[in-house]
Amino acid sequence: MSGVEKIAVRVTNIVPLNALVTRFEFKRSDGLHFPTFSGGAHVVVEMQDGEILRRNPYSLMSDPADQSQYAISVRRDDEGRGGSLFMHRSVSVGDEMLISNPVNLFALDLRARKHLMIAGGIGITPFMAQIKQLSRTNGNWELHYASRNAALASYGSELMAQHPNGVHIYYDDDKQSIALEALLKGQPLGTHLYICGPKGMINWVRDTAKKAGWPHEAIHYEEFLAPQSGKPFEVKLAQSSMVIQVGENQSLLEAIEAAGVDAPYLCRGGACGQCETAVIGYDGKFLHNDHWLTNEEKASGHKIMPCVSRFEGKTLVLDR
């Protein structure tokens, strides 16, 4: 039971923001209102990319209270498997697409006395929605946003204009960086820290906060791992009595779905735990790419997260 509710939408606007990032705006095909959502939520967008049905998660960055449209911003990844390239090259205004209902794995902790947000690059998108939500409810927040330069700082000037006191932007090209230790030191009790950006930045902020004595309950981060390409491999699905092939640019989860086997998922980015699948037998090596399984679980050879992880070797038998 994947249980993910789908909404049919039409692409109503495509806005290139800079050399890498483009915004896509959607309205519902049936003319009804979208559900409201909470800042930090994502939707899974379905893309029929040739033979492969891709489902990629993107953070909603429109106003959560605006039920007339949804918007996502997609960064083109020339090295990736093609989901973002498909969005950039093959999607046109007027196209009909399917998206999931919003799912939030990066929600604001509404008890926070203050929300301290750290964004890197395209990691700005969930904060766009969170800032709109907090502005409406008079929330106490502050954003620190690092980007390569002004041209690539998507929504940077818009945020600065709207919230001159709450937004701080740093450009790598100008050798600017967040004075993180000092920033963390001055935060009042009850502050919650949110991080979205590249893996290196997330690790740096988490480690620095941990060393400053911040409890992990106050540290929230979101990193969507894009599934990695890799060598093709073969998998036996025991419950379904089938043998399937996983292609070079296909994830294991996508291959399971392509075989018509229903598999649960929420984030498709190795974070939520929904697609966790038991391994019945194997002869080879796992390429675990998720942040869900513990290191012990990864080493045990008993579990795999098929949304982002792969396998190299002779045989893999899954309980699916």
Partner: peptide, 10 residues
Amino acid sequence: TLLGAHMGLQ
């Protein structure tokens, strides 16, 4: 004391 405290307090 709690009112004036900062994150990182143990």
